[in-house]
Amino acid sequence: MSLTARALLLDMDGTLVNSDAVVERYWRIWAAEQGLDPEQVLKVVHGRQGHATMAALLPDRPVERNLADNRWMLERETTDLDGVVPVPGAAAFMAALAALPHALVTSADEALARARMGAAGLPMPEVRVTAERVGASKPDPEGFLKGAAELGFAPADCVVFEDSEAGIAAGRAAGMRVVGIGPRAGAHAPDAHVRDLEQVRIEALPDGTMRLHFSG
């Protein structure tokens, strides 16, 4: 199977970087403090900004408390990089994209994105849409639409790479095709689905577009 695109919009956690160990460590602590079942909480944390997840889990909780807990979590996750590794194939994938239009669109803030991409040994894309730059978290399409606009391409010309339900929904809402990465993505009917980035090959075409080849 293959797709053609003029630009790629890349999620980070679960797509380029495997940070599950850190994410789960701190969400388990938070869930226990709130009297919530950690296993149920972990089913919904991926893809969203932390405060948005907290609001979904505890809808009557004051926004200020969610924002404060979100700051606490970001501070710890930014300095705790134990277990943060690249998704298989991520280094070669990013190298193949180096001269092609692409952007990072992540629910992490700039500091956390830099820390995790650095820990995984991956280059930071020049165009980045991080948590500080959007008013609404995924599954809202704002981040992907902003990334496409900064790259100068229409949404229909962009392909999103995502691992989570919220991220896949955001890509779809933006009017983009979505490649699902990893086990979480398969249940949400992306346009293409691969185990990891080792199953993706990028071919630059003479007209400036790229063809994405998927194996496996």
Results as ranks from 00 to 15, higher is better:
P139H: 02
L205Q: 13
P125F: 04
V134C: 10
E126N: 02
I29Y: 12
R211V: 12
A56Y: 09
M210L: 15
L57P: 05
V44D: 04
D140C: 05
P125K: 05
H213V: 10
S137V: 11
I29D: 15
V127Q: 03
G208R: 08
N70R: 15
A32W: 00
G83D: 15
D140P: 09
P123A: 04
A103S: 01
R195C: 02
I181A: 06
A92Y: 08
G143E: 10
L112G: 03
G121F: 07
A98N: 01
C158T: 14
G175S: 10
D207S: 10
V45F: 04
D196W: 10
L104Y: 07
R184E: 08
D37T: 06
R133H: 11
G47S: 02
M12W: 13
A111M: 03
P86N: 01
L205G: 00
A115G: 06
P190V: 00
A95Y: 11
G50V: 07
N18E: 13
P101V: 11
V85T: 11
M73C: 06
V41E: 07
E110F: 00
E33I: 07
P38D: 09
T15W: 14
P125Y: 04
T4A: 05
V160A: 13
M176V: 06
M210K: 06
S19C: 11
V179Q: 05
A115K: 01
D69L: 15
Q40M: 10
L81G: 07
G143A: 13
D82H: 03
P123G: 06
M73Y: 10
E165T: 02
V22P: 08
Q40V: 09
V41I: 13
